[in-house]
Write a protein that binds this DNA or RNA. Structure first.
Lengths: 152, 152
DNA sequence: AATGCAATTGCAAATGATTTGCATTATGCC
DNA sequence: GGCATAATGCAAATCATTTGCAATTGCATT
């Protein structure tokens, strides 16, 4: 988990290499994302950013998300509700468990499942390029659970 | 895999119980779905049905898909392109592997993965309500593969 | 610090999938 | 056959996202 300044600096370097520019709005959105501990959608990011810069437009958020995604700086997910949600990409790979009652998103990862996926794909004559695994669940009442990391 | 007539009859029974009616367009769409060996989207179903009944409207297709889904007669999937795709629901549970080059959809199922999912959810304090597992892959060149079931 | 030009932005309009309001039609019980 | 109302077709409405374009801004260069 690196800091905001480093993230901005890294991204600015990537931009420069591509002949692109670091703008106020990109800096702001990057900051919002770095501070986010959840999986906000474009409107959510826009709302948060808007408080710092009321001249920002939603189009710019969308364009920036697309740019960040193409640079590998963020990951985009589309859960069941259909809207795209984003999270920064400096963490290890993980999948998501969505609480069907609250919409809360819990992250998890399972090397065993990954291995099985690769095996299945190979048996079908494929190599996996990427995958999407989402569990939709309901909280168990009271017994033996172990919470890990939660957000919305 | 049951026949079309039986499917229509079953569905008509379900409709009757709900005070709903079996119409020409519902019958037609049901037939199209039963004959489909792929995962068509609303427009695709509409196109196929339109050849049999040019008065059919796309709205009716959407309304019918929603009805069929609520009756458990079909399953709806939204892969990465965002559009909803449908398949009849009389087969055993399975997940999907999508060929990133051709869009071809291969079905597979893995009890091992299902078991792991349940275990992971339980550890996080959840019971799984449903899940979504999609593998996006590229065909291996020539060696050891075993094709199973394919469609688009 | 001023200049120039392409990259970027904000805005509004366009898109594309899906839904919905409403007047018209058709289904299925009497 | 007649009726009440469920279902349809059409057009207009949504909703998330994208895009055209004129105005602005970043930044490399004087």
């Amino acid at each position: 988990m690196i800091g905001i300044e480093q993230r901005v600096a890294i991204f600015e370097g990537q931009l420069k290499q591509a002949g692109l520019r670091m703008t106020q709005q990109r800096r702001l959105i990057l900051r919002i994302l770095a501070e986010a501990h959840d999986h906000p959608d474009a409107k959510g990011i826009f709302t948060r950013a808007f408080e710092h810069d009321p001249t920002l437009s939603l189009s710019t958020v969308y364009r920036t998300m697309k740019l960040l995604e193409s640079q590998g700086a963020i990951e985009r997910h589309a859960f069941e509700d259909g809207v795209s949600r984003y999270e920064h990409a400096d963490q290890q790979h993980h999948d998501h468990l969505i609480d069907v009652e609250t919409g809360q998103v819990v992250e998890f990862s399972s090397p065993e499942i990954e291995a099985l996926q690769a095996k299945i794909a190979a048996e079908l004559g494929y190599e996996i390029v990427r995958h999407r695994l989402e569990l939709y669940g309901r909280k168990l009442s009271k017994t033996g659970r172990k919470r890990v990391k939660k957000d919305v």
